[in-house]
Amino acid sequence: MTGPIVIYVDADACPVKDETYRVAARHGLHVYVVANSFMNLPREPWIERVVVSDGFDAADDWIAERAARGAVVITADVPLASRCVKAGAEVLAPTGKPFSESGIGLALATRNLMQDLREAGAITGGPKPFSARDRSAYLGALDRTIMRLKRAGFG
């Protein structure tokens, strides 16, 4: 056994918190819900609210400092995903898309390009609306990720 599996949720604007709690309950995992402000959570001993300062990237920094092998990080924030992947954590977007060592460079480059285009005044549109298909894909991806970590000796 190499240590417990923990889940860190970048909670501001995360649309899959309830799904995360359901999967974590089934697997008996601890969930840290990290945000810049108070948010209501289910009253379960394995769900822990972490309210960080409202400083720039305070929630990201809190999560990145704890991300390691055996951790699962839920975020749509590409720079945070990059930091966590480099630390050895498993990282999932709320759509179920995994961030990986091989793909994080492209994801960062795309994010930076889109940000530069928006700053230059280009109309790039926003992300597509979150769908039931995204929610379903996320549930499956989180479950598969946890099972893979358990097979690797975490738990």
Rank of each mutant, 00 (worst) to 15 (best):
V33K: 08
R151K: 15
A76G: 14
G140H: 13
P98C: 09
R144C: 04
Y138F: 15
V91R: 12
R69D: 13
L80Y: 06
N36E: 09
L106I: 11
V51M: 13
V23Y: 05
L142M: 11
P94N: 13
D10I: 04
S100C: 05
A122T: 01
K17Y: 13
T75R: 07
F130S: 14
W46D: 07
A152D: 06
V23C: 07
A35D: 05
I123L: 09
G126Y: 11
D54C: 11
P45S: 08
A24I: 02
I123W: 03
M147Q: 15
I74S: 09
L139H: 12
D143K: 10
L80R: 11
P127V: 09
I104C: 12
L142T: 03
A35R: 01
A122Y: 15
L149N: 07
E19M: 12
G125H: 05
A122F: 15
R118K: 11
M114W: 04
T2V: 09
S82L: 02
T145A: 14
R118S: 02
A137Y: 07
H30P: 01
E119G: 14
A13I: 01
S37M: 09
A24S: 06
S136Q: 09
Q115T: 14
V9L: 08
D18W: 02
V50T: 04
I5M: 04
R135P: 08
R66M: 01
F56T: 10
K97Y: 01
Y32W: 09
V50W: 03
M39K: 11
T75W: 07
E119D: 14
V51F: 11
L29R: 10
C14H: 10
D134F: 10
A11R: 02
S136W: 01
A81Y: 00
G103A: 07
W62C: 05
T20Q: 05
F38R: 13
I123A: 12
R26M: 07
L108F: 04
E48V: 02
F38L: 10
M39V: 14
A71F: 07
A120T: 06
P42L: 03
G105F: 05
K150P: 00
G88I: 11
Y21V: 08
K97N: 09
V9A: 09
M147W: 00
A71P: 02
R111F: 03
G155N: 13
A35P: 00
P42N: 04
R66I: 01
V52E: 06
L149S: 05
A141V: 04
I146P: 03
K17T: 00
V73Y: 07
T2D: 12
C14K: 10
A13L: 06
I47P: 04
I7R: 07
A35T: 03
Y32C: 02
P79W: 13
N112Q: 12
E65Q: 14
V34Y: 12
A152G: 00
P94V: 11
V33W: 05
V72L: 05
A87H: 11
L139S: 14
S82D: 12
L117T: 15
F38M: 08
A71Q: 11
I146G: 04
E119N: 15
K150V: 13
V91I: 06
A64L: 14
I104K: 09
S100M: 09
R83T: 00
A109L: 15
F56G: 04
Y21H: 11
M114Y: 07
P129Y: 03
V6Y: 04
L41E: 03
I146D: 04
A93R: 13
A152H: 01
Y21R: 07
D134Y: 11
L142N: 03
